[in-house]
């Protein structure tokens, strides 16, 4: 089954979109270019040695012996210098990417679940606390400090265009930071094997200009819209009475469970099923009826809904902008 993925910038480590990824990218290019030059020199020397006309020499001849010793010592010294330069630069890079920039960062809690990402935007006012899933909204030009944890197994946060990998470990808090230079949608992926659906545990980082980001933040703090038409109203009823509300929360209704993703503003999301499918009617219908076909082993069970119930619940969920 080929799944059409949502639109995003091509996921690439060598196409940095933030200062942290750029530092890693520069160092990586330096390593590759230096290593290529060294390899080229070695192979050229080998080829010269192979094809050079041999002339009979006495190995014990002092002049030849001295010349050879000089060559070998010079190569060994050069190798050592290159390795020390690599080591120093690597150490400096490690320090630089581990240090959060001085600017006040935005704090986001990242929780890795089997097999989806939860992003919480904490606030001193409890009612402003947001929980969203699989799509991390960040402002452009401001570092974002990610406090990471996992309730089940080890996951790893990796958005190649923005930052390297950092593990999410059960019972042990970790943190990292990312920053985007330009607006865009960047794909990320769980980088530590975490079970059956590890491959479909993706995320999207949506970087917006600060004004647009603040607008999103304010909108996300509001409870869900009341359904407008009768189909969506029926959908809300299905959501609250069928099994959905046992795991999912929608702010503004009685559903407040924290087992599955929070669906308060589900309709405004680009993707479903941890960024494995674009968010549209067809995909959502298929997912609600039988998630085990799309992600075998996922925690959501198949739901035997009647056609009109399914229609209603899709209308309700897609209307939660």
């Amino acid at each position: 089954m080929i799944l059409q993925a949502p639109r995003y910038t091509q996921q690439s480590m060598v196409d940095p979109a933030g200062p942290k990824a750029a530092m890693v990218d520069h160092f990586w290019h330096f390593l590759i270019i230096t290593a290529s030059i060294v390899t080229a020199v070695v192979f050229i020397t080998l080829l010269i040695a192979l094809f050079k006309r041999r002339r009979p020499v006495e190995p014990q001849e002092p002049a030849v012996h001295r010349s050879l010793t000089r060559w070998v010592s010079a190569s060994a010294a050069m190798t050592l210098v290159i390795i020390v330069v690599f080591l120093v630069l690597d150490f400096r890079l490690g320090r630089a990417i581990a240090t959060v920039p001085a600017q006040t960062p935005l704090r986001v809690n990242v929780i890795g679940h089997q097999w989806w990402w939860e992003f919480q935007y904490p606030d001193t006012v409890p009612s402003n606390w947001i929980s969203t899933a699989n799509e991390l909204h960040i402002p452009v030009g401001r570092p974002v400090l990610l406090n990471m944890s996992s309730p089940d197994v080890i996951h790893s946060f990796w958005v190649p265009n923005l930052s390297g990998k950092k593990d999410l470990i059960p019972g042990h808090a970790t943190e990292t930071w990312i920053e985007a230079d330009s607006a865009g949608v960047y794909r990320g992926q769980c980088a530590e094997f975490c079970g059956l659906q590890h491959a479909k545990m993706a995320l999207l980082v949506i970087a917006d200009p600060p004004a647009k980001f603040n607008q999103w933040l304010t909108a996300s703090r509001a409870p869900a819209d009341e359904p407008g038409d009768s189909t969506a109203k029926a959908g809300k009823q299905v959501f609250l009475t069928a099994g959905c509300s046992v795991c999912h929360a929608i702010a503004g209704t009685n559903a407040g469970a924290t087992v599955g993703p929070n669906l308060t503003h589900f309709g405004s999301r680009l993707s479903i099923a941890a960024a494995s499918l674009p968010n549209n009617r067809g995909n959502l219908g298929g997912w609600v009826l039988d998630p085990q076909r799309i992600k075998p082993g996922a925690m959501m069970p198949p739901n035997g809904l009647e056609p009109d119930q399914l229609n209603a619940i899709i209308a309700y969920l897609e209307g939660l902008k």
Binding site: T241, A242, G243, V246, P301, P302, N303
Partner: peptide, 8 residues
């Protein structure tokens, strides 16, 4: 009833 699947 209706909240968990029979599987679960």
């Amino acid at each position: 009833k209706g909240k968990l699947s029979n599987d679960q």
